[in-house]
Amino acid sequence: MSAVIEIKDYTWRYLYSPNPALENINLTVHQGEFIGIIGPNGSGKTTLAYSLNGLIPGQYHGIKQGGIKVLGKDVESYPTGALQKSVGVVFSDPEAQFTTMTVEDELVFGMENLGMSIPEIRERLEWVVELTDLSPLMLKPPYEISGGQKQRVALAAVLAMRPPIMVLDEPTSMLDPISRRRIFEVLAKLKREQRNTIIVIEHSLENLVPLADRMVLLHNSHLLLEGETRQFFEQMDLLLEKGLFPPGIMQFFHYLKQQGRYDGYLPVTVAEAAEKLTSLLEPAQEGKQ
């Protein structure tokens, strides 16, 4: 797999800020990977998301060291508006992303900015509306629909531009559990069918972990831990120490591990956990019989 994002010795400090928001970050993301980025508030996650699609340094004054390459080109060498064709960003507050008066206009806006023709727009609109299940909402104002619907609109608006890389900055932080699940269902579909490179910044790990190929931990502006998802959560003590709470099933199996009752990988889905638990309980049940 080829590298689509290469972050090398990257440091960013906002003007007037005494400390860097990100310091000496090194990370490579490959095509088609699903990366989960976690970390407490103020660790630099949003700054990283903004750095990936050129909002930093484009829209913010600050001091940069090192560099970020997207699809082999330095972020700063992209002409205005060009990088956004490759990197789509979905922000945490859906309402703050709405720039038009109806859901349909919202979905179309990005495509118009790319200079697409009406037949092309129509075709993509049909695709994205079906993918995100938005057809009953098309003529409604985006700020008058529910929180979950809003975030699906925001996601669809970026998806419609079909960027090969998508960055989602806490896309479910304002949603209820059902709406959260629906967003991750869309992401799962994307991962399965489109092979997009997806980077998700999240606090809630229940839905993220089963999808993520790799996880990254940012803490105090530094990249503290990075690895394949299962290996990443083997560092459970470190994660708990840093105030991050992996899914309950993982903590449960970690506890069993500490008790010496389990020694495999930590399961990432409920189904996997059920399977592991059944196999753990089987000898005991056999003994009873």
Binding site: Y14, Y16, S17, P18, N19, A21, N41, G42, G44, T46, T47, Y60
Partner: peptide, 9 residues
């Protein structure tokens, strides 16, 4: 954005 401003006069 985190900590963008400080008290630099």
């Amino acid at each position: 954005m985190e900590n963008q401003l400080n008290q630099e006069e």
